[in-house]
Design a protein around this nucleic acid. Sequence first.
DNA 1: CAGGATTATTGGATCGTTCCAAATAAGTCA
DNA 2: TGACTTATTTGGAACGATCCAATAATCCTG
Lengths: 366, 366
Amino acid sequence: MTKSRVTVVDIARAAGVSKSTVSLVLQASPLVNEQTRARVNAAIRDLGYVYNRGAANLRQTASSKIVGIVVNDLTNSFFAELAVGMDIVMQSAGFVQFLANTGESLDRQREVIASMREHGISGLIISPARGTDASDFKPLIAAGVPVVIVVRNIAGAKVSSLLSDNYAGARAATEHLIALGHRRIAFLGGFSDTAVSADRIDGYRDALVAAGLSADAALVVNSAPSRAGGVAAIERAMLIADRPTAALCFNDAVAFGVCDGLRTRSLEPGRDFGVVGFDDVIEAQTAVPALTTVSVDPQGMGRRAAQMLLKQINSGRVEAEAQVASVRLVVRQSCGTGAGQWGGGASHDTVAKDTMGTDRRQHDRA
Amino acid sequence: MTKSRVTVVDIARAAGVSKSTVSLVLQASPLVNEQTRARVNAAIRDLGYVYNRGAANLRQTASSKIVGIVVNDLTNSFFAELAVGMDIVMQSAGFVQFLANTGESLDRQREVIASMREHGISGLIISPARGTDASDFKPLIAAGVPVVIVVRNIAGAKVSSLLSDNYAGARAATEHLIALGHRRIAFLGGFSDTAVSADRIDGYRDALVAAGLSADAALVVNSAPSRAGGVAAIERAMLIADRPTAALCFNDAVAFGVCDGLRTRSLEPGRDFGVVGFDDVIEAQTAVPALTTVSVDPQGMGRRAAQMLLKQINSGRVEAEAQVASVRLVVRQSCGTGAGQWGGGASHDTVAKDTMGTDRRQHDRA
DNA sequence: CAGGATTATTGGATCGTTCCAAATAAGTCA
DNA sequence: TGACTTATTTGGAACGATCCAATAATCCTG
């Protein structure tokens, strides 16, 4: 009942040519006569032929036109947007993508990468789970599969990476809060054992000391990098003896959670407490108050990562390249603009600072 | 330089057996001697062999262990969670998934499905883009590829579907608002030309007329089913002569937008205006005020859809089955619980009503 | 110990496509 | 007309794993 598939041979028979000719037509080769081409194409339509890429991929020259994408938490808008950005570029390049969510599980990550390799991915973009080791990429490198690490750095991994300028972003955001008059500024959310978190905390600390403020370790509160984590973090932050008056949050999800937590204590974010996020997910603009945040442009980052991977796939050379995406502070309403007690700010979506570290490149040999 | 791949023949040579034996080991066949198996496995490890599923899939008996997932808008938490639910089930079943985002584009949808077919998916789960026609699934059906339609119904499509009970959910939510004393209730967001929207509006209307209230067509405001759309919808709703005092929103994203829009007008959702969402995405619980919404459990729905598809793939029979997932109204804070002017409600995450239409099944012949 | 059952192993042939070398057809030139 | 292009077309032989039928090795059992 499930009829056996239609193959090039069937097409060849129907069009009265050889399978080789059909193959040439499929590849849009200029060698084939126009009438023959038309006849073959008609047969293809009539018989409902579907190209079997798996068969074609057997010959070791071909590219599978499949890439793998591995992320930690698709329910986080940041990763969802990142994935959408990649999807856009991959789709228009004629690639199709495996997408897997690890939920920070190293086991799942390992399994999923293995599975993708069996299916012959020609490249991989990964936001590695916490605890991923540089050696985990060895087999991929040995097999000549291009890899692009995004968002989180893995020290010592000899593969390409695209990271945002976390240090500069956090520093600019902290400086903004200081300029508004804040003296007790907390850093909320995230786990400080990750590279991303460490970089942001460094930027935050350096801004504080540069302004002659003390970097009180108690003001750094770890929590899950999620909305729920933000609620928990602000609760703990409010128990600190000398309360903070503002916070730089690990990401926008945490920032939204912090706003929620403030409201349950009848504090209005922006008026009674300054909140800055990180990422600039779409909701950041429409939320009330609109979130002041460090814009990372997740979708753009996804597109860029996809382009980096495609470049490597197409060039054939696997040449590690480290790119840093610049970020910019977008000032909105969540830190008290207008007539707040911390002085007047700009009015609407003002870009305060652009980190100029864009596109520093660093090449390793293949 | 990119060394040619390691194949079963290489393993065979290294282990001093034939390729057939290696194949048996790969399939964990009990026919092979323990010592031989050990020797082969050692060779597999030593040479860094990776199984080539593409080659195996050539023989028409095998299943590709790949499924396709097509959604409209991954940046919407509802779809992201849906995808995560599917991912969980597929991963543990040893499947790997193509994921593509259509952004409601029929062209992209067509291309992406074609591409997935060329790569030999053994099944497809799709939340069809607006305007998808039942005939679009003909080729898939003819080829014996199981399809599960989720979220949005396509009338006349002879494939399985998993939909939520939109009518019952909307009706229950509307009845809840009426019970709280509301008389002018709006329906905000979504496009009424989609089946989902139509069903929800039907439930909303029927609840109104059953309560002896007039169903004023002006109170139904279309908009994009997004946060931004919600902002736009509430703005238009506030221009209506006889203003509504509450709204049932097309989905949670719209509901959040409505809350945002209310706040910019200095109206506090829950106190000054009743808001009910639809979907129950994760943020619904942590948002302030916590959103009263119709819980669809998107992740659970994703899991269930994945199971439906796997069942069909494994059984071999392609038997269309229509399932309706029951929904329940989760009462939280966004419609004025406690001492609101519309009477006291329950306190915390109360389940008000469970639609009992679960798992009505309807079989078509294969 | 012949014959039968059991246990392990193994050559092809096969899946659907690509690609090379070679063949054929058609035209060109002297 | 024969040699020589140029334009089309075409049989195989891969690619890597599976699977069937057949073989080889071992163990019974009367």
